[in-house]
Design a protein around this nucleic acid. Structure first.
Lengths: 202, 202
DNA sequence: GTCTATATGGGGATAGAC
DNA sequence: GTCTATCCCCATATAGAC
């Protein structure tokens, strides 16, 4: 069931504009601290007009999150197909996730950090979508374990949760003008996953 | 400057109760979605009464966050002193951080996940406090690098940010009734830091 | 599709009694 | 210290004109 969506969704227009404006504002200020008035202003419209597209503010958020899942899923799937080497696949997928979260779209950030704003019904849908995305990572990791690339005694589920956590938290501190490029950060995380940080010669 | 604090803070009373009720609610529902009415109800009081203790809702949040920083700092400092072995120190500190965040107090969670609710002034104070805590981790890591325990070519700042990210994100999915105890999760993260997950025999 | 105008409710906050 | 009473604002959402 598709929560809160307006039936035929009109003829398409510049909905994308509305969603990306909303995504940017939700990311910058958070969902509750962003009013429909602000979103409307960003689109050169008036608050009431938004209800032609979305039945509630929450429905707008849910639609945004759907786009976020679709986007990050697509990016990681493409990255996965870009190499035959399993360890290199991992590196590419890590960087794809970071790029989707921090460069390509505000929707992925909103998806990951604003789900607590959802009521029970919408929350269920979004958690399902997020789980679908995470199952992509689950299969990436399980494949690596099956191939013997990752040690068999490593818990795949824990590895996925911890790894995605390390990636997601980057969104709280990353500075595009900072010392490290996003790819450098992704490669760093990949490096830790491969061999840790301890000096074995000591 | 101590933002928003009520001057002499009265004679102590059961402020801790108020703060822990607020912390629990902020953690469960988020800051904006928790009304002063709800907090007051949890304390068997009425909304207006809260203003005797805190000049604004935000000041209450800030005080909560101060407690959160103090608590997690103390826990990690104690853990650090509990072993002489640097690698074991790291394990203990990881688990101390997780315990502070997920068992000992809701304030640490609120500190880490609700800082976006703060206005510019309060935000500056809280970010300073958080930076003080992170400098504790910075010195733990720098010491390990100086001792040659961590490879010298590893960027200490990145390691701290990524590591704390992996730890903090655990708060979004940890289930006390789940398959892994908190210590098991901490040890897993520690294990990755030490040697990664890749099978070198393959 | 967007605007005008407005209903409605709840939120944080205040003043002063007790 | 807590309660009573209440103010004021702003947010979401609606109805109907254009």
């Amino acid at each position: 069931m598709v929560y809160g969506q307006v039936p035929p969704a009109g003829k398409g227009g510049n909905q994308g504009n509305l969603l990306s404006n909303a995504a940017r504002l939700f990311r910058e200020k958070g969902f509750e601290r962003t009013s429909l008035k602000e979103i409307a202003e960003a689109c050169n419209m008036l608050p009431g007009s938004l209800y032609y597209r979305y039945s509630t503010k929450e429905a707008l958020l849910v639609e945004l999150m759907r786009r976020g899942v679709d986007l990050v899923t697509a990016e990681v799937e493409i990255a996965y197909a870009c190499s035959a080497d399993p360890v290199e696949k991992l590196r590419l997928c890590i960087n794809a996730h970071l790029r989707a979260l921090l460069v390509d779209s505000d929707a992925v950030y909103v998806l990951l950090f604003e789900w607590r704003a959802l009521g029970p019904e919408a929350r269920e849908e979004v958690i399902d979508l997020r789980d679908q995305y995470e199952s992509l990572w689950a299969s990436i990791i399980e494949t690596m374990i099956a191939q013997g690339v990752v040690r068999k005694n490593v818990d795949g589920r824990l590895l996925r949760l911890i790894g995605l956590g390390a990636l997601n938290w980057v969104a709280t501190w990353f500075d595009p003008k900072g010392a490290h490029s996003l790819d450098a950060i992704g490669d760093f995380i990949w490096q830790i996953a491969i061999e840790g940080v301890i000096n074995k010669d000591a």
